[in-house]
Structure formats: structure tokens, C-alpha cells
Design a protein around this nucleic acid. Structure first.
Lengths: 218, 218
DNA sequence: CTGGATGCTGAGAGGACGCTGAGAGGCGGG
DNA sequence: CCCGCCTCTCAGCGTCCTCTCAGCATCCAG
């Protein structure tokens, strides 16, 4: 992870660089507004830590220009200004977070992680298990690359199995979670639907563990 | 924009609802952890304001479970706990922001906007999906270059679908967002309007995902 | 080997789901 | 007041899905 720290107090900048480097980040420093803007424009950073009070060009202005250029790199503003309007203005310029000096290093790290996490995980698009690929957002299933048509119940059942791949899943548990039914329901439904899945996905995709339940072939 | 506020102090909850509604948000309230979790699971919210100290299930736990279920709705934790580790823990559970009580309303709003903005990504002047081009500013629609006349309701429905092209959109969700109606409304209206859209845009523009909802052809 | 428990499968009834045409009611413009 | 437009409800239809049942296969204990 590459970070850009834009901070004119050289001692604070150095301390941040040292601490963040120790956390495994690659850190570059810029000391002025224009230098920070220029560096951020290169686009090589996963996040920018941006002081508000900077020589020549304020942090506010730097974010505003970046956003104006359609540059959506995550930006955390850092400032000694703790007024509610300072904070609101900073965020409304387009920053993603606003940290008040003096700040706790622990909090800085946590907020940084939160910022990077959001960017990093646009969406875990597909669940996979062996030849199987499921896209929960579209309720689509592919087996060995070929699309498979499943009914809603079949899909829910398969999704549950795929989400619990490394253990045996009991019929009662499936009735509970997939059918949302009580224990007075005949577990035979599960057997029937496992059968449907096997027909569509190949007989050996779902394994029976006699007396215990089912599990996916891995 | 729909918000979920999970807060057990009813007076604070009411005040928040009133203020946020005045800002143009549609606000739902949940008073307990489990209720909040359940509501958030429906997926109909653009962001969640989540108190940490809740009956039955803490805010931390609610976020953790949501994230465990691959639910990436933006979450802002709100808490009177101002220790650095409280904050760090909350963020590391998967929350996107952490606001300390008592908080400034101005700051809350700014942070909320920042949170929603991050999700919203840049708003392009023209939305497109396949052969479709929509201009939200003028509420104009073109299909394969030719202008299409849509009624207001048809337009809103189509816009919602175009804005969520990467997943299946449920009828209830559409009733919520396009009709702004409760769950006691007959989902048949949605079917009817999907039918209207298909007549104007071609039958295969909107796909039915049986038991789940609709999605645009990609 | 035998009998009971467990799991699999085909057939089919009944119901859920989604689509459509007709039309009632509301609203605003002429 | 009438007309056109829009929204929504309703009932009917076809299709697809779900679940039950009964018969059969397989497994394991005794």
C-alpha cells in the first residue's frame, strides 16, 4: 500500500513516515500544497494524508482540485482546526475523513484502514468452490464456466453449501436456514433438492455424509 | 437517499429522524441491535447510523455480522466512548466512520455526505447501460439513439435500475425507492410497470430473475 | 443373512409467481 | 365539463416451482 503524506512540519512528517512504514506502508512525503497536488496527480497512491494548513495551497484546495480532475483517491484531511464548520467544510470539499490534531496514532491507523478497506473491496463478486462460481448479486451460477439455471430454492441451497464449504452441513440445519422451517418438516425435501442440484451440476459435486448431512466436493 | 438509524434512546432517535428528514433523507428507525441488523439486511439503505451501546446486540457486533454476510452498506458508528481503542475497535469491526457523542449536527451531516459520496462515485451527466442512455438532468431517455417517451413513474423505475446495474433489484426494494411505499403495497404495480418499460424499450432490456427481482440486460 | 434405518428418485398435485388486458379513478389543460 | 394522460387495481392465464408420496436402493447392526 502506497501512501502520500502532505505535511509541512518536517518532524511530524518524519514521525508519520517512520510509523507508517513500520506498519508496512510505502510512504512518500510532500511538504507544500503544490507539491502534494502534483504527487497525488500521478495517481500512484492508495490514500493521501493531507494537512490542511499548508504553504501556498491549502489542503482544502488540494482536495477540491483533485476532485475537480475526477481524481477519487481516498483523502484524509488532518488539521488542528477543530471547529465543526472547519470539519464540515473539509469534508464537503471532497475529503473522505477529517482527523483533528493532536491525534491518536492508534485512531489514525484505524481510520486509514477503514479508508483503504472501502476502496479495496468494491465487492467480493463471486463465491467459488471447485468448478463452481456463484455471483450473489445476480444470483447467477456457473459450473466449469457454463451458466446453470437454478430455481430460487436450488440457488439458496447451493449458496448455503458454498458459504460453508469446509464442513458437513446437516439436513435440519439446511431446513432451518434455507427453508426457514421448523423441525416438524420432512427432511426429505432436502434430499429431493440435493438431487436436483446433482442433476444440474454433476452427481459428484455434492457429497453425502451418511447420518450427518452434505458437503461440497473440494 | 434512505438512512437507517439504529438508536435506543428514543428522543435522540426522534431528533435525528426529524433533522435528517428535513435534509431530504428518508429515515427509518430501529431501537435494538437485532432490529437494526434485520433492517440493514434488507439492503434498502444508502447508509446506516449505528449506536454502539444497544440492547441485546452491540453496534460492533451488528457491523461485524453485516460484513460477515458480505453486506457493505456504509456504516457510521456513534458512541459516547471516546477512547482511542474504542474508536479503533469500532472501525476495525468494519465500520466506515466513528462519531463521538455528543456530536455536532453539522459534523454529522458533513460526515454522512462524505460517506454517501464515496459510495455514489462520480455522478456522470449521462447514465448508460447497453443500448440505453439516460440524462437525469433533463429526464430524457434514448434507446439505441432514438428518443423514448416515458411517464414519470416509468422514468424513475428505469433510472433506479440503471443506477444499480450490477445486481438484481427486488420488487420490494423498488416499491421502497421508486414508489416510496411500505411493504403492504401490492408488488404487482412493479410488474405492470416493468411491462410498460419492456413495451417501450424491447422485451429483453429488463430481465426477470424469478423469485428475486429484475436486472438490466448487460 | 435379515430387518430397519437412511438416502435417492420419478411422478404428479397444487400453488406460487409473473405477465397482461381491461378499466376505474385522479388530475390538469383546454 | 370533457378529454387525455397517468397510475394503479383486478382478474385470468400460462408457466414454473415446490413439496409430498411411494417405491426402490443402499448401508449397517445384530
Amino acid at each position: 500500500m502506497r501512501l502520500l503524506v502532505v505535511e509541512d512540519e518536517s518532524r511530524l512528517a518524519a514521525a508519520l513516515k517512520q510509523g507508517l512504514t513500520a506498519e508496512g506502508f510505502v510512504v512518500d512525503i510532500a511538504a507544500t500544497g503544490p507539491a502534494g497536488l502534483e504527487a497525488a496527480r500521478t495517481g500512484g497512491y492508495d490514500a493521501v494524508l493531507l494537512d490542511v494548513m499548508l504553504p501556498q495551497l491549502s489542503g482544502y484546495e488540494v482536495v477540491r482540485r483533485l476532485r475537480g480532475e475526477q481524481n477519487w483517491v481516498p483523502v484524509m484531511l488532518v488539521s488542528a482546526k477543530d471547529g465543526e464548520h472547519d470539519q464540515a467544510d473539509g469534508l464537503d470539499c471532497g475529503a473522505d475523513d477529517y482527523l483533528i490534531k493532536p491525534f491518536s496514532y492508534v485512531v489514525l491507523l484505524a481510520r486509514l484502514r477503514a479508508l483503504l478497506r472501502r476502496r479495496a473491496v468494491p465487492r467480493p463478486a463471486v463465491l467459488t468452490a471447485g468448478e463452481l462460481a456463484m455471483d450473489p448479486a445476480h444470483r447467477e451460477v456457473r459450473f466449469a464456466g457454463a451458466p446453470v439455471r437454478l430455481t430460487p430454492r436450488e440457488y439458496d441451497l447451493l449458496e448455503y453449501l458454498v458459504r460453508h464449504p469446509d464442513r458437513v452441513v446437516g439436513k435440519i440445519e439446511l431446513l432451518d436456514h434455507v427453508w426457514d422451517a421448523g423441525q416438524d418438516t420432512d427432511p426429505n425435501v432436502v434430499e429431493v433438492y440435493i438431487g436436483y442440484l446433482r442433476r444440474k451440476l454433476g452427481a459428484d459435486t455434492v457429497l453425502t455424509v451418511r447420518g450427518a448431512g452434505y458437503t461440497l466436493r473440494r
